[in-house]
Design a protein around this nucleic acid. Structure first.
Lengths: 108, 108
DNA sequence: CTTTTATATCGTAATATTGCGATATGAACC
DNA sequence: GGTTCATATCGCAATATTACGATATAAAAG
């Protein structure tokens, strides 16, 4: 091959992604890129509508830690929680997971 | 709604994902979930075959740091580097990005 | 064989994340 | 009102990540 340094190969394609979309995308990746948070996502895929306590029972970590991870997933847009009396029912955000899937397909 | 605690809703579906695949998937997510590493991925999408130095020139961080990030991306499977004399040409691993895309579609 | 060029690795400081117990909040029930 | 239940937040320790300069490695050129 032996290309000379300084001659960056020309763009093979255009990857139009806005700054906001990019930030949002990276945040979702980062949030999902943690083993325990991924367990939570998996659990919610198969058990939509579960409350925090049920997720806590399903995982080997303390309630406070689960709550923290749920917050990260919420803020990243992966999940949404609906208050139900003293409890909170969680489920994946269809809208955002779809958006994520679409962006993965567009970028890679 | 007011479901009683202890009655976890039944599985709505089966999410068959092996332990190895899951680990690999999480690792790719984590690797891509960093702003600078995502810049590198983006750069390689549009400029396949670039050498490390060209990536360094394109980013506001030191060579040592870029090298470290490239290692993370390599170990996660996102990219592969081909030695070309004293330099290394990097490009996305089509095989692994495809695998990643497929898994995103299967899980979410 | 020495020098140059390109990259990787080492050691380390600064920062961020993770996990926990303790505590606060807030709804439902008595 | 007070009590219970479910969750969130606070404060902090342990750990991990990030970034860098300095140095090592290794190929090519002289």
């Amino acid at each position: 091959m032996n290309r000379t340094r300084g001659s960056i190969p020309p763009r093979c394609c255009n990857l139009a992604i806005g700054e906001k979309d990019e930030t949002r995308f990276i945040r979702m990746m980062k949030a999902a890129g943690n083993p325990l948070r991924f367990q939570i996502l998996k659990f919610l895929v198969t058990h939509p509508g579960c409350i925090t306590g049920e997720i806590v029972d399903h995982l080997p970590i303390a309630q406070a830690t689960v709550s923290q991870h749920l917050k990260v997933l919420r803020e990243a847009g992966w999940i949404k929680g609906e208050v139900d009396g003293p409890a909170v029912c969680y489920e994946l955000s269809t809208e955002n997971t779809t958006w994520f899937r679409t962006l993965v397909e567009r970028v890679f």
